[in-house]
Simulated scan of single mutants.
Amino acid sequence: MTATSTTFDPAVYGITPGAAGDIAATPPGGQHQTDIAVIGAGPVGLFSVFEAGMLKLKAHVIDALPHIGGQCSAMYPEKPIYDIPAWPKIEAQALIDQLAGQAAPFDPVWHLGQQVVSMARDTDTGDWLVGTDKATQIRAKAVLIGAGVGAFGPNRPPLTGIEDYEERSVFYRVARKEAFRGKRVVIAGGGDSALDWAIELADIAAAIMVIHRRPKFRGAPESVAKLHALAAQGKIELVVPYQLHGLEGDPAAGRLDVVTVADLDGNVRRLDADILLPFFGLSMNLGPILEWGLALDQHHITAEPTTMATSLPGVFAIGDIARYPHKLKLILSGFAEAASAVHAAREICRPGEVMHFEYSTTKGVPGA
């Protein structure tokens, strides 16, 4: 069989392009009641809304960001993802749009731009009372924590005056590849993000220079091979072993002219550049989650792998924030965890109610 397309086309699925951006958040404040409170609106949290809807459970979703999508939307909306089943290649934002459309028939309630700051159990009813920093309180029978890495932000390189260039010529994410067309781009880092964007921008940018402190890169072997192949073709320059040393340009205008780099002996090189993309990972902060009495393992929430149950009754952890033996930090693993957690949560939300398991092909979805 020949694949005719690897491009995501939302219209094929009846999903409005940019559906994630059309979501209207509920005004902050007030009292709410639901079956499941989902903390985190990344891809795994979004899929849990669909799973809940298929079991006739209502969901409220809370996220500190003003939009859904988590890291996929905030950090790399145009980054291609290759390990989503049935999609040889799909951009991160397209995946979020698809998940938003998949959840839409079940009318989730969105509480965006709000951080969950408290979670307490009503000892009389067993419900959980979830409170946000915007005075919103949600009473839920079960809670799914899909907060990814918690509050996150890029690790900033220690360069004097870098703040003057940020979001003008220094960027910690690639929101739109076309913005770098014809530019001289310096990419710093040796992990997957640095390699992926060097490869993606090689045919768009006027020049790509990759800085790393050692000749060996930490990315996926296939990506490393592609990087070296592009370097052999003259499409990428590997500046190794060097580290970022300084920035030159017009700070008042945010215009970058030169990135200086230095090797371990202190020898300095000047690289003519318009753009610097430093990819040194994310700083992660679980914030108030640390105070909720959950069993933790190295700032991750310990979960039972068959149900994703945590040490607190009625509270489940899914996605990157969850930890158990042989855990794989993949979106597709998170999807399976969401399904397991929602099915376990159903026993709490509908105690004693017999469920006859049906496949989605049999049940369909509302409006289909």
Rank of each mutant, 00 (worst) to 15 (best):
M308I: 08
A52V: 01
P241K: 13
Q31M: 07
V117M: 09
R323D: 14
R156D: 07
H300S: 14
L65D: 14
P221V: 03
T7C: 10
T302V: 15
T4S: 07
H32L: 15
P27V: 00
K329L: 12
K363W: 11
Y165G: 06
Q114D: 05
F152A: 13
K183A: 09
K134R: 12
T310D: 02
P43L: 10
A120I: 07
P325Y: 05
A198S: 10
E237S: 10
A262I: 08
G287K: 04
L227K: 01
M355I: 09
P43N: 12
V109K: 13
S48E: 03
E248P: 05
G153C: 01
V38A: 03
L159C: 01
T307A: 01
T136H: 01
G287M: 05
P88A: 15
P351T: 01
H326R: 09
A309Q: 13
V210N: 11
A341L: 01
L330C: 05
Q33S: 14
L227W: 02
A338M: 00
A229S: 05
V210I: 14
D127C: 10
D164L: 09
A262V: 14
L55F: 12
P158W: 08
R121D: 02
A188T: 06
T136A: 01
A175T: 08
I68P: 08
W87E: 12
L247M: 04
G150V: 00
A104Y: 00
L65R: 12
L290C: 10
D22S: 14
A179M: 03
G131H: 11
D9V: 15
H60S: 02
P105N: 08
A20S: 11
